[in-house]
Write a protein that binds this DNA or RNA. Structure first.
Lengths: 189, 189
DNA sequence: CCTACCGATCGGTAGG
DNA sequence: CCTACCGATCGGTAGG
């Protein structure tokens, strides 16, 4: 059965196109050409254009969810934050193509997927925020507005997805070390 | 002559729609409705949908250009970087709507505007980068990959445009002070 | 500034 | 998986 691997091929090509041109500007004809099929043939493998976006967005949402579940709440806040930053950098550098759909294109989801996605994201941010708050309370982090720190951290790794390409001048380990160092120095008391 | 103020009204409404729905997903009919005109009437004030995007993108590019021109190369690198961060935060918080076109939607520009925009951006980043390099050389900043520091700084203020709303719980001055503090602490030796 | 309309392109379906 | 095709919507123009 080729159907399943075809589905994957189409999804990967879609993620790439959504990143390069944006969801709305990507046509099913573009996508068909990218996978060397006629437009109508796509529908043997996928339900709709939006279903593709849904797939990509929730795959990543769950990736972040698993990463969050793997951190130990008993660890000191600075260890937890370090681990979350590593998670973000690793997802951004490993799966360069589809992170941007996750970052920018989720707003093109239809209901009820849109609300569901927003809710997953909200929960994730809430957990991230409470670790920052704990760190500030404990004196490990400097006194600052927690939400400001949260959004700064989250968006400071955003450039990786359109900048980082594997095997370029700078390797993942170095990006990870330097970036985490810069941000943690900014946070720590 | 109402033409000029109408042009402004249309541009502001367009910037808002481009931010909320994205350029490609915004139709001229959406825009017409937002300014209470019939779609065809828009064309008495603007040349095309893309001309609106061009206007918005280059207005901001020149805003950043002027900000860069205003910094004094004789100042210590850390003073120059502080000033540039203030510029970014001020543009993001003052002109919330159209910064996102500048950030995300410029890729929908047609040639030759697309190349021209990329070139302006490249020049700006190059100047920013050389200040960081000077700071690392002088020992004011810690030793790090300059381009990594550049992109981290540039993208760490990106969240402001869709998060910050004037008169919300936290005021501009506080955002500015805390954000600059966090980032400079990350950079300084 | 509006009514009326254009050709092009969109996401998707029918039917084999 | 393809050919053929659908109604809807797109950016934009003609003409007043």
């Amino acid at each position: 059965m080729s159907s399943n691997s075809q589905h994957r091929r189409i999804k990967v090509a879609a993620a790439q196109l959504f990143r390069d041109k944006g969801y709305a500007a990507t046509s099913m004809r573009d996508l068909a050409e990218a996978v060397a099929l006629k437009p109508s043939s796509l529908y043997n493998h996928i339900a709709s254009k939006e279903a593709l976006l849904r797939d990509i967005c929730f795959e990543h949402a769950h990736h972040f969810e698993r990463g969050m579940a793997a951190i130990n709440p008993a660890d000191p806040p600075e260890v937890q934050i370090r681990q979350l930053l590593r998670l973000h950098i690793q997802i951004a550098t490993q799966d360069v193509t589809s992170v941007m759909a996750f970052n920018d294109e989720w707003r093109h989801l239809n209901e009820p997927a849109l609300s569901e996605f927003r809710s997953l994201r909200k929960t994730y941010e809430q957990r991230f925020l409470s670790i920052l708050e704990a760190g500030i309370r404990s004196g490990a982090f400097r006194d600052m507005t927690p939400s400001l720190a949260l959004y700064t951290l989250l968006s400071s790794v955003r450039w990786l997805y359109d900048w980082f390409r594997p095997g370029r001048q700078i390797e993942v380990e170095k990006v990870e070390a330097e970036l985490i160092d810069l941000l943690m120095k900014g946070l720590l008391a």
